[in-house]
Design a protein around this nucleic acid. Structure first.
Length: 105
DNA sequence: TAGCTGACGCAAA
DNA sequence: ATTTGCGCCAGCT
């Protein structure tokens, strides 16, 4: 199991309506300080969520710990729309703290 | 093998 | 509250 495989595995488990930070993904993937590397992987994402296959990766649900939108291959405005469509609360370009996914719950 | 890059994070200013 | 600088790590020339 490579780092990238673990990352994609974690991201694919994020429930709709919730988000997770790059940092947390890196942590769950077993490499605590690889937040930046996670971003690289999302950009290279081989399975965009809209394919809706069971292997799709909802990369739009991965955001910065700062609560801002962060980047997105299809444009940040698109990323915001997608998140809102799934029920994520975004006010003035900031994601509500309660929208962050917690692995327990 | 050796740099270079970036959808990040954090601390200092 | 913002902006800037620097460290980070895996992937890609």
């Amino acid at each position: 199991m490579t780092f990238s495989e673990r990352v994609y595995s974690v991201v694919s488990k994020i429930p709709a309506g919730k988000v997770i930070s790059y940092k947390t993904v890196a942590l769950l993937a077993g490499s605590p300080g690889a937040a930046r590397a996670v971003g690289t992987l999302m950009k290279k994402n081989p399975n965009p969520f809209y394919k809706k296959s069971k292997h799709s990766i909802p990369c739009h649900r991965v955001v910065p710990v700062s609560g801002k939108i962060g980047g997105y291959a299809g444009g940040t405005s698109m990323k915001t729309k997608l998140l809102r469509r799934e029920g994520v609360e975004i006010h003035d370009g900031k994601i509500a703290i309660n929208s962050f996914w917690k692995k327990h719950n």
